[in-house]
Design a binder for these strands. Structure first.
Lengths: 251, 251
DNA sequence: AACTGCGTGCGGTATTATAGGACGTTTCAA
DNA sequence: TTGAAACGTCCTATAATACCGCACGCAGTT
């Protein structure tokens, strides 16, 4: 489907190893990838030269390099949505004291491009750049709801893994849920991805009226119970505000 | 000095092109790098496949990919200094209402690994992951002061570019300044990098007593004038607190 | 001292990245 | 409407290059 350069494929594979452990020895990378030691050494050295991998001076262990910070920042600046949404998200977070996420759809996954955390001691384990399956998250389902059914298959995995007792595992049931979201204008994640984790999500529309992003408030179910109404209000206003700033004009 | 893989060198060179413009056509990349069109196409396709480059569906233009967010987040998590320092920096920022930076030294440059911005309308143009020359910034000079003179040459460029009328351009003068910083325990940037930009910086020591990071408050000179004392107090306490959390024990 | 596991360096070879060129579209001007 | 220019994409031959095998130096352990 596309021309591919082997060395880059391998280099990326090496970088991905660090998604599991953030410190690796050369030999560990060799074991994980299965390539020859000197091959890995060459790739790692090159990546190190460019700052994409750092090597600890004493332990010799490798880790992801700080150069990624520069690229990442560039990415976030090119997505002007982050600049627009960030202050509004902080405002929501300050008021409701729960984690606020901003995400977009990429294939079958949701990618979080901004996160504002509350000071609550019990917080969501999440991260900017992290991805989750779309079908079982609030943000994900809202994003899916913006896509016509005919085009949905590319964004839904063949098997919907049952991550909790409440996960939606049948496609037809998921379609029903998406219809509900389209009708209501927002969506939930009622402990479908992780037990005890509750989430309310609203869509953000771009200039063309496309559901380009989604914003959510998530927290432990026991806390979110009493905050649902507040979350609705804050998210509704917030999503409208952000959509407006993207040039969206409600019809 | 190290084994190098050509394709990766070229791939990184392509990625670096996006540091100047955040949207590029294939042909523009070809012009910037000088490689053959199909060569660039292969590299770009591979990078795109891995999400390191995204392509706009309609305009076909390329930009840096969201995958960087994931790597970058991983980097920042592996640097536990960010977790430690971030809340303290926010506290300082709330109190003094100016931008707070956390940086480290890499070669001749300072790399900012965390930034907390105030709500002031006039703000510093800066970014996480961005780098500046060390010799003419507050954070940079403080970091340089932690290095013995004998080893300094590797961290100071041959020619000190005169970026403003107040930039230090003579090496011996810079050495004097570093001595002052070593004596005082903190440093300034008095409009040396950018006219009108004033900055106070303190060192952060790690477990081994090494000056590993530096933290700073920066803002326009006219505002910083009256806030110097407050900045000292906040930064002194903050840097001590962070150093302590890194395992540093003052002797 | 021998042994194990580590990161690193070198050279020959066959795989692979690359350049050249062609093709289908789109864009814009004539 | 036509033509030309510019662009992204694709294919193939070939020469350059990334890879593997092997070896070395080092540190810690038996």
């Amino acid at each position: 489907m596309a021309a591919r350069v082997q060395s880059i494929d391998r280099a990326v594979e090496i970088l991905d190893c660090f998604m599991q452990n953030n410190e690796l020895r050369l030999t560990e990378i060799v074991e994980m990838t299965g390539y020859h030691k000197s091959t890995v050494f060459g790739l790692v050295s090159t990546l190190k030269y460019h700052g994409l991998i750092d090597q600890d001076e004493t332990s010799q262990k490798y880790r992801l390099g700080i150069a990624f910070l520069g690229y990442s920042d560039r990415v976030r600046n090119s997505l002007d949505i982050v600049d627009i949404a960030s202050p509004i998200m902080r405002d929501i977070c300050d008021k409701i004291q729960e984690t606020v996420h901003l995400g977009l759809l990429r294939g079958k996954s949701v990618i979080y491009i901004e996160k504002i955390e509350s000071n609550q001691s019990i917080r969501i384990a999440s991260a900017v750049g992290m991805s989750n399956p779309a079908y079982c998250t609030g943000v994900g389902k809202v994003l899916l709801s913006g896509i016509p059914n005919a085009a949905l298959s590319a964004h839904i995995p063949a098997v919907l893994e049952k991550r909790t007792p409440k996960t939606i595992t049948s496609v037809s049931q998921l379609y029903d849920e998406l219809d509900t979201i389209r009708k209501d204008g927002f969506g939930y994640d009622r402990e479908e991805m992780e037990a005890g984790l509750y989430c309310v999500a609203f869509p953000i529309f771009d200039f063309y009226g496309k559901t380009a992003y989604a914003i959510s408030v998530s927290g432990p179910s026991f806390r979110m119970e009493g905050k649902k109404e507040q979350a609705f209000d804050l998210l509704r206003k917030g999503s409208q505000l952000i959509s407006a700033k993207l040039g969206y004009t409600a019809k």
